[in-house]
Design a protein around this nucleic acid. Sequence first.
DNA 1: GATGGGGCTTGCCACCGTGGGAAGGTCAAG
DNA 2: CTTGACCTTCCCACGGTGGCAAGCCCCATC
Lengths: 150, 150
Amino acid sequence: MNIGEASKASGVSPKMIRYYEAGGLIGTAARTASGYRQYTEADLRTLRFVRRTRDLGFSMEQIAQLLGLWRNEGRASADVKRLALSHVEALDAKAAALLEMSRTLRRLAEVCQGDAAAACPIIDEFADGGDVRPSRPRAPDFAPARHRGR
Amino acid sequence: MNIGEASKASGVSPKMIRYYEAGGLIGTAARTASGYRQYTEADLRTLRFVRRTRDLGFSMEQIAQLLGLWRNEGRASADVKRLALSHVEALDAKAAALLEMSRTLRRLAEVCQGDAAAACPIIDEFADGGDVRPSRPRAPDFAPARHRGR
DNA sequence: GATGGGGCTTGCCACCGTGGGAAGGTCAAG
DNA sequence: CTTGACCTTCCCACGGTGGCAAGCCCCATC
C-alpha cells in the first residue's frame, strides 16, 4: 500500500506520516525498488493508534511512550493509567487557564456599552489595568517549548 | 531608557520587545547614536498594553487591532467589544475541546485497573478505537461512523 | 587610559505540529 | 509515448518564546 492509501485508511496526512517516521514515532516504512513507502495492515494499526492519541492531545513524546507500552506485553496498566491521568491534569490546567481568560474578558465586555461611543472599559483595562500581580510566570498554556533534552 | 529597563518595567522580555517591533506591533523605537533602543513612558504604556492582552490570549494580529482601537479616539466601543467577545468564543471553544479530551481520557482511565497486569482499556481504545463504555452493546458489523473529520 | 563585566546589537537555531510548494522520479491508463 | 496522478526529498512558513554567538558600547574601577 502506498502512502496515499495509508493516509486515507488511517486519517493521517502523508506529510505527517513521513514526519512521524522521521521523528521515530513509527518505524521506517518498507520501500519499493523505486523508493515508494509501502504500508501493511500492521502499519495502519500503528498509524490509527497515533491518530487517536493525537486527537486526545498527547504530545509526540508521550505517544512514543504509549506506543512502547502498547507493544510491551509485559507492561503494567498502572503505567498507562499514570500517563493518561497526568495528561488529563495537563488538559484540565490548560482549559482552566483558557476559561480564566475567557471569564476575565467576558466580565469586561459586560460593562462595555458596545455602542458608537469611544469610551470602553475593555480598552481602559488593557491600558491602565490591573498590573497588580507582579511578574507572575507568563501565560502558562502558551509556554515555550521547554527544550527538554533528548 | 534601555531595552532592559523597559523589559523590567513592562514585564516583556527584551527578546519579545524586539519581536513585537519587528512584527509591527509596537512602533520602531528611537535609537541612541550607537544604536541602543530608547524607550519612553509612552512606550512602556504600549508594552504593558501588549503584555496584558497577550496574557488574555489574544494573537498578535488581534493585539495590533486592539492597539489601533486604543489609539483611535474616534473608535466605537462596539468594535472593541466585538473583538473581545469573538475571542471569548474562541477561548471557550478551545477550552471545550480540551475538556472533551480530558473527559474521554478520564472515562477510559476510570475503567483501567492501574495495576501490574498488562490488560488496559486505555491502550485498547487507542489500538482498536473500541467502545469505551463496557455496559453499552457492541456496535454491529457495519461501520461505527466515528467521523472525526480531518 | 586600560581593563573587565554587563548591557546592547543582529542573526541564526530550536521547539511543536502542520501545511505549502518546488523539483524531480514513477507508475498506470489512454 | 504522453499525460496526470502519485511519490520522493528538501526548504519555508506559522505563533511565540528561548538560547547562543559574535561583535559593539558604556561605565566603573584600577
